[in-house]
């Protein structure tokens, strides 16, 4: 009797030990697999710069959680610009992207890709395509931009769907010739949707203007920075010391207009309209 219960106990012990050993083996094996997968995920969720997400896409980390890789956006894009990432491509497998230089977003007004998205991966609250921020165009190479070289290429400016807001042409003097103007394309993040039409249209061999993901293209001021002129406007006047009108120590009958006509004879002078020499110079004596 005693012996029997002892062997029973031993058998129970052994099977319990086996159970713990099996569980530990499984937990370690699968845990290791999970760790590898997690580390791989860290690499694979970093979006390469040439891959632009469709309009309304959440920030990258949230996007890779919300996107269920169904490809509905790809199907409903009327211009077939979207692709799903293949396993060998360096981003989350099965997520949608487009390459601006191959085919940019055509900015459909009804945004069918967002409408068809079954999750919040493409933000359904975005209804105005002009408010989308797929990326930000950056005139990345001034050395090959034809406008910087003095030509009137202007193509990026012309093809921009938000012309004169997202890209403007800023005249500058051409220091090389000394007599011509440069018309410099300047991108404004307040209006650029990142559609990539400028990059697609850039006529140089490799585009001088490129759409980059927002995190690469956009800088950010430190939180404590204040723009003096903005604050002044908000306050309705100078915040430091009251502005005093600058006093020019000028000869009588002359006036100086800063940023305007410069030095002129004061038309309100009582004497003749012609410039009059100051008294000090009259009569050859001091």
């Amino acid at each position: 009797m005693d012996n029997e219960s002892k062997t029973k106990g031993q058998a129970g012990n052994a099977s319990r030990r086996q159970f713990f050993a099996d569980t530990a083996r499984m937990a370690c094996g699968v845990g290791l697999l999970g760790l590898g997968l997690g580390l791989y995920a860290r690499h694979a969720t970093a979006l390469p710069p040439a891959a632009i997400r469709p309009p309304g896409a959440l920030p990258e980390t949230e996007f890779s959680a919300a996107c269920i890789r169904c490809g509905m956006c790809v199907r409903d894009c009327p211009y077939d610009i979207l692709h799903l990432a293949k396993p060998e491509e360096p981003m989350s497998t099965g997520t949608p992207y487009f390459v601006a230089r191959q085919a940019p977003c055509e900015m459909c007004e009804d945004i069918p890709c967002i409408k068809v998205c079954p999750t919040g991966a493409l933000d359904h609250s975005l209804t105005d395509i002009n408010k989308s921020r797929m990326g930000l165009a950056v005139l990345i190479d001034q050395e090959t931009c034809l406008n910087f070289l003095g030509l009137r290429c202007d193509i990026c400016y012309r093809v921009c769907p938000v012309i004169d807001k997202a890209i403007t042409l800023e005249p500058m003097s051409n220091a090389r010739t000394g007599k011509h103007a440069l018309f410099i394309p300047v991108v404004h993040s307040s209006d650029c949707t990142g559609c990539g039409k400028c990059e697609k249209a850039c006529p140089t061999e490799i585009a001088a203007i490129k759409v980059l993901p927002m995190y690469m293209a956009k800088g950010q001021l430190s939180a404590h920075y204040r723009l003096g002129w903005v604050e002044k406007e908000k306050a309705g006047g100078s915040l430091v010391a009251p502005d005093a009108e600058h006093q020019y120590n000028l000869p009588e009958g002359m006036r100086y207009e800063h940023g305007g006509k410069g030095l002129t004879a004061d038309p309100a002078a009582p004497e003749s309209a012609a410039p009059v020499l100051p008294k000090a110079f009259q009569g050859g004596r001091l």
Binding site: M26, A27, G29, V30, G31, L33, G34, L37, G38, Y40, A41, R42, A44, T45, T61, E62, S64, A65, C67, I68, R69, P87, S92, T93, G94
Partner: peptide
């Protein structure tokens, strides 16, 4: 175990890891 791991990995990483 793998099923459980994929769910834990999704929760920890905040992304659908298994779909990769």
């Amino acid at each position: 175990w793998i099923l459980g791991m994929t769910l834990v990995a999704a929760a920890v990483s905040g992304t659908i890891v298994w779909e990769m």
